[in-house]
Amino acid sequence: MTALLRVEGISKSFRGLKAVSNGSFELSRGTINALIGPNGAGKTTIFNMIAGVFAPDSGALFFKDRPIHGLRPDEICSAGIGRTFQIVKPFAGLTVLENVMVGAFLREKTAAGSRATSLRIIEKLRLKAEQPASTLTLPDRKRLEVARALATRPELLLLDEVMAGLRPTETDEMVEVFRELNRSEGTTILLIEHVMRAVMALAGHVGVLHHGEVIARGTPQEIVRDPKVLECYLGEETEV
């Protein structure tokens, strides 16, 4: 089976600081994958390169065997890659429903269609459709990020720390949402997560990033026993 997303040796520096160096990995269709690593490891930078926020300095990205490096974020989204922002970016002047409808309009031609799709997603994520986005709590803002991205009906969903700040029961609910999505729609997922509870429950494959380099990969069980991983997390707070 060919990979849905192929990342080949991508690097990115910010004014001399190497945020990501020579990162490579592949995501198979229909899998759930996690990217973990300490703060500043370069995880979000990898997302931003996949999502087209900026092009890699070197290396290449292929989605369904089509090169996507150099495309704009909206082109990447249209191609079928949805993303959430770690630092949430709600449309504060709009309601939850209106926020999600913006995403749904990518595939829905009419307002009625977009509305129907959005209401289904909003219910799944236990948000209130008519609530102004500006009054949402942080966990709900994260849910809104997810709802909006889902509304674009992505084949690959990039989730940047969407469980941060959720209570354990809420985390489990969110995990269930992604499992169900993966099962019913076959959506491929790549999540960045510090909450190991979620990573262990969801991911079949985990990559560990440290100082911009992939230092380990494997199943969650292999990863938590890897001495290199334990070393880079030493002194870091992790919730297992």
């Binding site: 909206d74 002047g93 709009l94 913006v102 307002a111 977009s114």
Partner: peptide
């Protein structure tokens, strides 16, 4: 305001990066 154009315009007004990430050619 109730059409795709209205939603897209308001999204751009509220947050261009988020709008672009949802497939809007800003």
């Amino acid at each position: 305001l109730r059409s795709k154009a209205g939603f897209y315009w308001q999204a751009i007004r509220e947050n261009e990066d988020a709008a672009q990430a949802l497939g809007i050619n800003v």
